[in-house]
Every structure is written in C-alpha cells, then in structure tokens.
C-alpha cells in the first residue's frame, strides 16, 4: 500500500480490498431489482387484469382506482424510482393472488426451505467427502466415477420418486409426503443432495489429485507423513478453494431444486410459493423471489471472498 495511508494501513487496506466487492455486490442486487422491474412492466397484458383474474367483471372505475393506488398511471421513471425505494425498505408490494404483503408470504414459507437446504448441504458434503476419500485405488476410482456420473445425470424428480418407491412405499421407513420433523425431511434432503454430492466429489477429487501432483507433497511424504497426515495437514486444504468456489452455485441449485423437491414431496416452502406464483402469474411474488435469490447469491459470494484468504495466505494482500 502507498505510504500515504501507512498510519491506518490495516483498515485502509481492508477497505480497498473489500470495497470493490461490496460495490460489485450492490450492483448485482440493483441489476436484479431493475430486471424485476422491467419484467413486471414488460409483461404483456394489464397487471390489473392479472390481479383480478381474467373473468373479473370489476368496473373500469374500480380498475382505474387500483391503478392509481399502485402508481401505474405515473411516468415510468417515477415508478422505477419509487420501486427502488420500496425494494430498499424490503417492501415488495402485495401478492396479486393472496392479497398479503409479499414479504409475509415468503417469510412464512422460508423456514421449511432453509431446513431442507441445510440438511441437503450436510448430506452432500458427507457423501462427497466419503466418495472422494474412498477413491484411492484404481477400482475404487472407477466406481467413484460411475457413482458421480449417475448422481449428476439423474434428475431429482426421478431419484426422488425412486427413493419414495423404495423407502416409503416398499420399506415404509419414511413418510410418503408432507409430514413434520426430521423423518419427513430425510428423503427430500437426500434427493436434493445427490447431484450436488456428485459434483462436489468430482471437484474435491480433482483438487486432491492436483494437490498430490504438487512438489510439496513429495516433500511431505519424504518427511514420513502417513496418508491421513498428508490429507489433514496438506492436500485437503488445497482441494478446498475450488469446492468453496462452488458454494454460490450449490446454494443456487438448492433454491432451484427446492421448487421441484417441494412439489414432488408435497412439502411447504418457497419453492412451492414460486411455483404457485408462476402458475398464477403472481408477478410481485416472482420478482421478490428473483431479488431474494440475487441477495442470497451475493451474500454467499461475499462470504466466499472472505474465506479464500483464510484458506490461502497468498491471497492476503495486506501485510
């Protein structure tokens, strides 16, 4: 860093390091919000029609008053600015269909999806690590490759059905659908976790292979380390940055996957909210979910950015 900020070098350095990322994150959220706004206004048809349903026989007068209330008669730029203001205050308007604030609709359904996603991540990590660490011999590697391939290539709505057939209908270990508590969560979470575990296992294995080909592993082996010590002290850490890079992608695919899983297993959650909203063209809800997804993505990426330097000291630019 330059000498001018030497006095406050640490804080200043941290600021110059993270400020661009913070700005970048805000740009992504702003972009998402703008996109949502454009979509809301590009959608063919009158929003009021969509709101009231096609068969509605409400008089033109009432429609006009609704337009006024929603600000739809104002110039587009003014609407946009007002909309941005609402977004900043987490006001996403009211659901056309449920006649409730969008925030309340999503908020009420958030917990089941978070539970599902959290258990899925745990499953995915455990399965991926198990496969990656077991694949040491040539035969085990071939088997691991096959398992990964099947896990990645099978659509969740199919593996979910298979798991249901076997574990719910035949063995009756888990409830068929709905239900509360952990037992009802296991199959959906496992279904959601499988493709992610496949990808994660590949990435970890690739990372371990890459690390194992590095000269420092020769040094470590020449110091008398066992394989477990090599993993724990050296290679696993080298394999983790690519896996961490996947974090945002994984959380994204959890969100997307939740739409299918919740439908398949008849679970409540924001995936269900999303599907209902799309089927009913409940656009304020759809757009709030779009912004929600962008925020989640941005937050995960900020965390990842903070994690990298902890894993790899070469990325700590400040000293």
């Amino acid at each position: 860093m330059s000498t001018a900020v030497a006095g406050t070098s640490r804080a200043g350095a941290a600021l110059t390091l993270y400020l661009p990322r913070l700005v970048g994150a805000l740009i992504v959220i702003w972009g998402a919000a703008t996109l949502a706004f454009l979509v809301l206004h590009l959608v063919p048809g009158d929003p009021v029609d969509i709101m009231l349903g096609v068969q509605s026989t409400v008089s033109e007068q009432v429609r006009e008053s609704i337009r006024d209330e929603l600000g739809l008669n104002q110039p587009i730029l003014q609407q946009y600015l007002a909309y941005l203001g609402h977004v900043v205050t987490l006001d996403f308007g009211r659901s056309y269909r449920l006649q409730q604030p969008v925030t309340a609709v999503i908020g009420a359904q958030l917990l089941p999806t978070v539970q599902l996603a959290a258990l899925s991540i745990v499953f995915a990590l455990v399965i991926a690590l198990a496969i990656a660490l077991a694949a040491r011999t040539r035969v085990a590697r071939a088997i691991a490759t096959l398992i990964e391939l099947i896990a990645i290539s099978s659509p969740t709505f199919w593996t979910g059905l298979l798991l249901l057939t076997v574990f719910s209908f035949q063995l009756r270990w888990f409830p068929v659908s709905g239900g509360q508590g952990l037992p009802a969560l296991v199959l959906p979470a496992l279904t959601l976790a499988l493709p992610i575990a496949g990808i994660l296992s590949q990435v970890i294995r690739h990372g371990l292979d890459g690390a194992n080909a590095q000269p420092f592993v020769d040094s470590a082996r020449a110091r008398g380390l066992t394989f477990a010590e090599q993993l724990g002290r050296h290679t696993l850490r080298h394999a983790s940055p690519p896996a961490v890079t996947l974090a945002a992608y994984i959380v994204g695919s959890l969100l997307g996957g939740a739409v299918i899983i919740e439908q398949l297993f008849g679970r409540p959650g924001i995936g269900r909210v999303a599907l209902d909203a799309i089927n009913n063209r409940d656009l304020p809800v759809v757009m709030a979910l779009v912004i929600f997804a962008a925020v989640v993505f941005v937050v995960i990426n900020l965390i990842v950015d903070l994690l990298y330097p902890l894993i790899d000291p070469r990325l700590r630019r400040t000293r």
Binding site: A32, G252, G257, V259, A274, V286
Partner: peptide, 13 residues
C-alpha cells in the same frame, strides 16, 4: 447479474 440467479429460476421467470 444474470449468473446470480439459479438457472431454474431464470427459466421459471
């Protein structure tokens, strides 16, 4: 910005 959304969500929108 486009990549911030899960692919399935983009398709749904």
């Amino acid at each position: 910005i486009a990549l911030a959304f899960p692919e399935l969500l983009v398709a749904l929108v």
